[in-house]
């Protein structure tokens, strides 16, 4: 039984080490996921922290500036809207009218500076059938 104990201790050490890694990893990368309304409601408290926001790209709101790889657009969710600025290569599936998730920070001027744009899958891979 003494041997058994040794292995148990080994297992516990691995478990604790993994748990510790998970905890610190979680601390550094947990990101709140908001709707536009939720984001705007919390304005003060989350200014400057990394969050994800989901919304629909408003038609005709997309402006691109190839010289600086900058893109400006607005995402909407019902009556709520949020202007977004993004710099970088845009996913192929991005276009007006689709649902996107933007990750980044809300600046003081009310503009959301996105560092990542996540588009949902190509629509033909799986059209949304439910409501």
């Amino acid at each position: 039984m003494v041997k058994h104990k040794k292995f148990l201790i080994g297992g516990i050490i691995i478990f604790l080490a993994t748990g510790y890694l998970a905890y610190t990893g979680f601390q550094s990368s947990a990101t709140y996921y908001y709707t536009i309304n939720e984001l705007l409601a919390q304005k003060g408290s989350i200014q400057g922290s990394n969050v994800r926001v989901t919304g629909q790209v408003a038609g005709d709101s997309v402006q691109t500036e190839p010289a600086t790889l900058t893109m400006k657009f607005t995402i909407i969710d019902g009556p709520a809207s949020l202007p977004v600025v993004y710099k970088g290569a845009v996913p192929d599936t991005f276009k007006a009218g689709i649902d996107v998730v933007v990750e980044g920070r809300l600046e003081n001027d009310g503009v959301f500076r996105a560092s990542v744009i996540l588009t949902k899958c190509p629509s033909r891979y799986e059209p949304v059938k439910s409501s």
Partner: peptide, 9 residues
């Protein structure tokens, strides 16, 4: 609230 963990995690 929905909290996502990123790639870093």
């Amino acid at each position: 609230v929905k909290i996502e963990v990123g790639r870093a995690f």
